[in-house]
Design a protein around this nucleic acid. Structure first.
Lengths: 291, 291
DNA sequence: AAACAATAGTGTATGCTATACACAGTTTCG
DNA sequence: CGAAACTGTGTATAGCATACACTATTGTTT
C-alpha cells in the first residue's frame, strides 16, 4: 500500500530547513496547493493515521503531546509554545515530536481543538432557548478566558475539529425550541457566535494580563490610558464628552475604565450586550411565528 | 527502545541577542514591568520622539517605514512581515529600522493603527442612527477584509492608537441621536463592535484565501469539508440534521457552504445578524424613551 | 531463526528571525 | 575645531522550525 506510510508524513523534501520567503502563506502560490494544504490539515486533525505494524512501538502518543502543548501554553503563553518546550516537558528531543505530527501547524491544530474542550452538558431540564443560549455564551466566554492564548490564534484560518463542532452543536441545541428554519438557525448561530467571540476580547485581554501577574487595576490603567488620550482632543469630541461626562473619572478601580462613572462591570457589559442580541433574535422569532 | 537521554544541556542562554525563555510574555515576570511595558508601547505609538538636533539627518521616516511594513503585509501576509522584508523594500539594512522603532512590536503597533485607517466620513445628511450604524459596520468589515492580516493580530492586546479611536468616535457619532446615556452608549458601542469583529471572521478568512489565489469555490469546499464531517455523525445530530435538511447540499458554489440550501450569501448573513443586533438595540432605546 | 523492512527517537546541520554591539561617516553645538 | 550625538552598516548570537542521517527496535517474511 502506497501513500500514507504511517504516523508522520515528513515535511516535503523540497523545502530545505525553514521556509523560503516565496513559500510563505500569502505568496502567490498556485491556488490548488493552498486548497490541498487546507485539506491536508483537516485530514490530519480528523483522521488518526493507522498504527503501523512494523517498527518500534511509539513511547509517546498524540494525546500526550497535545496535552503537553496545552499545558505549556497554559503556563507560559502561546509564544512559549515551541516544539522544544513541548518535547522537553515530555522528556524527549524536539525531533521526536515530528514522528507524531508532521509540523508545528498540525500540532497546533490538534491542541487548539483539544484545548477548546466540549461545552458543559445541560444538567437540569430545558429552560427555554433564551436562558440556554445565555448559558452557552457564558460557558464559551469562560472557556476563552481560561485559555486566553486560544484567542491569539486566527480561529477561522484553522481547520475546525471535533470540539469546535461540538460547541456549535450545543448552541444549536440551545436554539432548538425556537422553531426557526434551518437557514435561520445557522444565521442565528453565527450571530451569537460572533457576538460572544467579539465581546470576549476585552475579558480575554484581562485574563492574559492576570496570567502575567498584572493586577486588575494596573491592567485597567493600561487600557484606559489610550482612551484617555481622546479627552479634550478635537479629533474625538464624542468620545471625549462621554469619558468626561461620567462621574468618577477614570481613576477608580473599576475593571473597565471605559465606563468609569456608574459603569457596568465588564461582566455586566457583556450580559447587557447579550441581552440586546437576544432581544433582536427574539423579535425575529416572534415576528416569524405569525406566518 | 532508542535511548531516551533527553536533550540534556543546551548551551545556557545568556543575555545575548534574542530573548531568554524567562522573558517571554506569560512568564511570571513582575507585574510592574508588564504594566510599564504596556505604557511604553502606548507612548511610542502616540508620542513622536523629538528630532535630535545633533547627528546625521535621517534618510527614512517612521511614516515611510510603516507604509513599507503595510505594503509587505498587504502583499505577502503577516508571516512575511519581517524586519528584513521591510528594510529590503526601502533599500536599507535590517538594523537601520531599529533607529526608528526600538523593536518589531513598536513597528507593528504603528503599522496596525495606520493600516486601520480612518472610517469614511459621512457624505450626505444624517440618516438616523440605524442606517448610520449599518454604514459603519459595513465600512469596518470592508476595512478588515481588505487587510485580512489585521485580524490575525490579537487586537486588544495592542495599545490603541489614534485611528483605532477614530473608528470608535465614528460609531459614537452614528449613535448620537439615540438619546442614550453615556454609559449605555459605551455599551452599545461594545455590542456593535463585538458583533462586527466576530462576524467578520469568515469573510476575512475568505479574503485571505483569495489573496493566496484560491477561488471562492475552493475555499468554500475547504471550509465546508469540516462541517460536513458532522453529517451522520452521532455526536452532532442537530448540525447534521440542518446540513442535510437543506436542498442543495454543499457542492454548489455559494460562498458559505454552511448555508447550502437556499442560503443567504455571506454578506447577507452578516446583514441578517446585524439587523438582529440593531433590533435589540432599538428595543432598548424604545423602552428607555418612555422613562 | 535469520534476514529484512519499517519505525522511533537521537544528533546534527541549515536557514531564517529578532536584535545586541561595535564601527564609520555625518551633523551640530560649544 | 573637537566632542557629542546621531545615522546607517557589518557582524554576531540565540532561538526557532525542520531536513537528513544514524542507530536501536520490532514485526514480517523467508
Amino acid at each position: 500500500m502506497a501513500g500514507r506510510t504511517g504516523q508522520g508524513d515528513r515535511p516535503s523534501p523540497e523545502t530545505k530547513g525553514g521556509r523560503r520567503r516565496e513559500d510563505l502563506p500569502q505568496a502567490p502560490a498556485n491556488p490548488e496547493s493552498a486548497a490541498r494544504d487546507l485539506q491536508r490539515r483537516s485530514e490530519l486533525l480528523w483522521e488518526a493515521p493507522p498504527r503501523p505494524s512494523r517498527g518500534s512501538k511509539p513511547t509517546m502518543s498524540r494525546e500526550g503531546i497535545v496535552q503537553a502543548a496545552i499545558s505549556v501554553a497554559d503556563q507560559s503563553g502561546l509564544a512559549a509554545l515551541t516544539m522544544y518546550a513541548v518535547a522537553e516537558r515530555l522528556g524527549f528531543t524536539t525531533m521526536a515530536i515530528y514522528r507524531y505530527f508532521p509540523n508545528k501547524e498540525a500540532l497546533m491544530d490538534a491542541s487548539v481543538d483539544a484545548a477548546m474542550g466540549t461545552p458543559p452538558r445541560r444538567s437540569g431540564p430545558r429552560e427555554g432557548w433564551r436562558q440556554e443560549v445565555k448559558h452557552w455564551a457564558h460557558a464559551k466566554r469562560a472557556m476563552l478566558c481560561s485559555r486566553p492564548w486560544l484567542a491569539e490564534l486566527p480561529f477561522v484560518a484553522a481547520p475546525h475539529g471535533p470540539n469546535w463542532l461540538s460547541w456549535h452543536e450545543a448552541l444549536l441545541e440551545a436554539l432548538a425550541d425556537t422553531g426557526l428554519s434551518p437557514e435561520d438557525l445557522m444565521d442565528m448561530l453565527s450571530v451569537v457566535h460572533a457576538y460572544v467571540s467579539g465581546a470576549s476580547d476585552t475579558a480575554i485581554s484581562l485574563a492574559r494580563a492576570r496570567s502575567r501577574g498584572m493586577s486588575d487595576e494596573l491592567w485597567a490603567q493600561a487600557v484606559g490610558r489610550d482612551l484617555c488620550r481622546a479627552i479634550r482632543h478635537p479629533r474625538y469630541p464624542r468620545l471625549s464628552a462621554i469619558l468626561t461626562s461620567q462621574s468618577g473619572g477614570i481613576s477608580d478601580a473599576s475593571p473597565l475604565p471605559v465606563r468609569a462613572g456608574k459603569p457596568r462591570t465588564m461582566e455586566e457589559g457583556f450580559d447587557f450586550g447579550l441581552e440586546r442580541v437576544l432581544d433582536g433574535i427574539e423579535r425575529y422569532i416572534d415576528s416569524n411565528e405569525g406566518s
